[in-house]
Design a binder for these strands. Structure first.
Lengths: 230, 230
DNA sequence: TCTTAGGATTCTGTATACCGTATCCCTAAT
DNA sequence: ATTAGGGATACGGTATACAGAATCCTAAGA
């Protein structure tokens, strides 16, 4: 009698239950990524609580979570502010990303199953289609999804939990810097290296891809600095 | 009258202020590491709150923090439980640790200043002294401190924030597995590699050290499994 | 006019009380 | 012995209150 007591086959007692704090966190994260809350925005607990129709508590917990994810910085007694990624932050992000994606690739090369590889191939194809269709939003999402898939192939849970927040910030950054790039060839080659089963080859491609990506972002940031007029 | 209103030179408005949630988190983390709360222990909010003389709120936030640090796992609506590190958890911990410490070493080799190197040398000496004195607790702490110092040498803030919680769990694990090992020669060689300024050499030593450490822990865990009688 | 000292305001940090509901545990009936 | 109740417990969340820090505004003074 929790819900739908008459639904015959519904034995989903509450499988998709998600604490309010998590839903609030997801919502706030999305707003940051979508630039609804640009860098520098103060996140005032009472405001957000009122706006989302919840109490302060879930909002506080959500903000704490976003803090550990690196999206906001909180000064004790002053509250949370959406961070501005400095040049150094970006470099560090790429440093760590590279190191961890290399590891993920190596492990993926030896651990991925045929079925998983097939799934990633599909994700690649989606990106290809988005590119052909000129759908930039879908392309960006496909690129992000590809990285997530690679991560899963590693079968390393810790790696995923550590890297995911970093990816989140990277994607955030990439969206700020403009058009998603055509990474199809790049991703494709990288993927094949993993599929080949050679950890060394996979590592090499991961590293190359990470560095290429870094160069792209560096260039975009440099342009943005020269022309700060939006 | 915040504190010592009569102290003449005390213009430290409140520099060392720490929110209650952080102090509760530190306390709980310490209890977990010290095995006051062994794996499997339920952390009941009201109990801890009453015991520490605070309200449930800071306790909740502390538990959330420990969750992201990987010390406890919370099942929605059932509360937090101190985790038991599985064999796979341990392997993953070492995987990620190795990748990140290699990066830290490389960056440390090119970025560490003379003064910093001197400080680390002192930390090493402390470990040496603890070893000679047979002070196992101090030896363990010195080993932990050494890793922290290397991390700082990298001048990579993100690397530190990502790796620190992992180190925490690792140290927790090491304390569970028994005597701290004599890593003086190991650490010393590793340090000199960094001090030499060669990223490649530093990376090589970091990798070697990580793998050696992993082997030690593997062996200890294997022994523990064969003789589960404490 | 610029500076500065108050003073009002805002917001965080924390406490307290309370409700609904999921879970767990114990007991009693079959 | 198994199973169905039926509390007891504890989490998730709401509402409210309040002290103190931070900030902002304003008005008096140099």
């Amino acid at each position: 009698m929790s819900r739908q007591p008459d639904a015959p086959g519904s034995f989903d007692i509450d499988a998709d239950y998600k604490p309010l704090r998590d839903r609030v966190r997801d919502e706030l994260r999305q707003r940051i990524i979508d630039d609804v809350y640009p860098a520098g925005t103060r996140l005032v607990e009472t405001e957000i609580a009122a706006q989302l129709g919840v109490s302060r508590l879930p909002v506080r917990e959500a903000i704490r979570a976003l803090e550990t994810e690196g999206f906001v910085r909180t000064v004790p007694r002053r509250g949370a502010v959406v961070v501005e990624l400095s040049e150094q932050d970006v470099e560090e992000l790429f440093d760590v990303r590279e190191a961890l994606e290399v590891l993920a690739s190596q492990q993926a090369a030896t651990r991925a199953t045929k079925a998983e590889l097939r799934r990633v191939r599909n994700a690649l194809a989606r990106g290809r289609k988005a590119l052909d269709a000129g759908d930039r939003v879908a392309l960006g999402e496909a690129n992000e999804a590809f990285h997530d898939e690679i991560l899963k192939l590693s079968h390393n849970v810790l790696l995923q939990t550590v890297l995911e927040p970093l990816q989140g910030r990277l994607h955030w950054l990439l969206r700020q810097t403009g058009d998603p790039h055509d990474l199809f060839e790049e991703h494709s080659a990288w993927f094949e290296a993993i599929a080949s089963g050679s950890p060394d080859l996979a590592a090499e491609h991961a590293r190359r891809h990470a560095r290429l990506n870094r160069e792209i972002v560096r260039k975009l940031l440099a342009e943005r600095h020269q022309a700060p007029s939006a």
